[in-house]
Design a binder for these strands. Structure first.
Lengths: 233, 233
DNA sequence: CGGGAAGCACTGGCATACAAGTATGCTAGC
DNA sequence: GCTAGCATACTTGTATGCCAGTGCTTCCCG
């Protein structure tokens, strides 16, 4: 019985986007498990708002395929679809790799400094193993990498596309050897960007992104109930 | 005073997505002009539904930056932002070019046949000059090109990202010389795909996509009221 | 006659009430 | 004991009512 936070009344963000972020995070953290049933009424009372903002949040999550809503029946956390993960991976790779090429060309010394700071923060969590903290640092890193291309929308769209992938990312962190390797891979990307070498940056990033799918077969046999059984026709 | 269609009661699609499509189409056709004020009440009564489905539609349009909603003030069709167009162009290029590489590798004879049929349809509208018809054919063509990569989500995401760009695409069609040139460019992409040459396909497509921005400066001086004046800080 | 302030009409945000449909469990009949 | 059918308690979809805040208009006073 996972608990969603009660939305603060004075939040600067409007209620629907707060609800959206809260539910989204819970799904990605797999606190709300794939296949689990969600009730608009329950969510609304848990968060201390009415159904209206919850519905708006669920509509966005439905657009991202994170939930499946069946009229007059219920709303369900969608199971992880291998096909959807593949699509998301493809899109993420196309967008981030294109962006990092520009970033390598455009980034200046202050940008390089920012990247270094993010690397230091990652190194720090290497030891203590706070997975959620690292997950967010990882996001921040890729976000920064995208924004340096001066196309801020890229990150927004990428976020929208890779919801399915995010659960794999989060679950993969449980594998002990995975986290430090990621930091090393980030390191290589940063080096290439600092060297202003677009080709090397794209190559390093592409390699890094592909690693995410490494654990997928293992996860799939470990928790088959998290995944869509067969791709129905 | 443009009129939106009354939503059919027996439509298979739920009311909110019908409303979304209707408003979206009206915006890219520039029947709803940039800067124009929209009222949830007006839209609801025009379409014969209540505010609730209209609100859901407007929320999605807001996510795509096609409308700007100011609380307690009004909802406005957003003016075309040159920066947003640039972002959309970058994203579209990254996604479609990556997809067309795969498409060139994976497409078989029946796929090639489909592309040829789409080309024939385009040739047909070359003479009669039905701009809206051609616009949709153009969309179908790029959609097909994406889907051949076996990553159907690419088109969905691309659609989401390029809303701003779509108005430019639609307005550019008014330029007489533009339409036939587009058909020729499509031709070259198809030839490369049929030849199963990913590099050539990507190159031809990238060139074609870049042409869309060709008319932007002209449009901007022709209808400055359609554009965001200055990129505010 | 001019200017300022108060009222008003309208906006979108949110809560709530009603409608339509599904699954489930209980009961009655065989 | 078992099965068929109905009542009920859910679900989401839609409509409506209320609220806080904004811009404009109009009226009153100097």
């Amino acid at each position: 019985m996972p608990v969603l936070p009660v939305l603060p009344r004075d939040g600067k963000e409007p209620a629907p986007v707060q609800a959206y972020q809260a539910i989204r995070d819970a799904i990605v953290r797999v606190e709300l498990e794939p296949g689990q049933r969600l009730s608009e009424n329950d969510l609304a009372s848990q968060m201390g708002v009415s159904r209206t903002p919850v519905r708006e949040a669920l509509a966005r999550l439905r657009d991202e395929q994170l939930v499946r809503v069946v009229p007059q029946l219920g709303t369900f956390v969608s199971r992880i679809s291998v096909a959807a993960v593949g699509d998301a991976q493809f899109i993420r790779e196309a967008l981030e790799c294109a962006a990092v090429r520009l970033s390598a060309e455009r980034a200046g010394p202050s940008d390089h400094e920012l990247l270094e700071e993010l690397m230091v923060a990652q190194e720090r969590t290497r030891a203590d193993g706070d997975l959620d903290a690292f997950y967010h640092l990882d996001d921040s890193f890729h976000h920064a990498l995208c924004d340096l291309s001066r196309h801020p929308t890229v990150w927004t769209i990428s976020q929208r596309a890779k919801s399915h992938l995010n659960r794999i990312r989060r679950l993969s962190l449980e594998v002990p050897t995975y986290l430090p390797e990621m930091v090393d891979e980030h390191r290589r990307v940063v080096d290439a960007v600092v060297a202003q070498d677009p080709d090397a940056a794209e190559l390093a990033l592409r390699y890094h992104l592909r690693q995410v799918l490494r654990e997928l077969p293992h996860l799939r046999e470990q928790r088959p109930d998290y995944f869509e059984q067969a791709e129905l026709v």
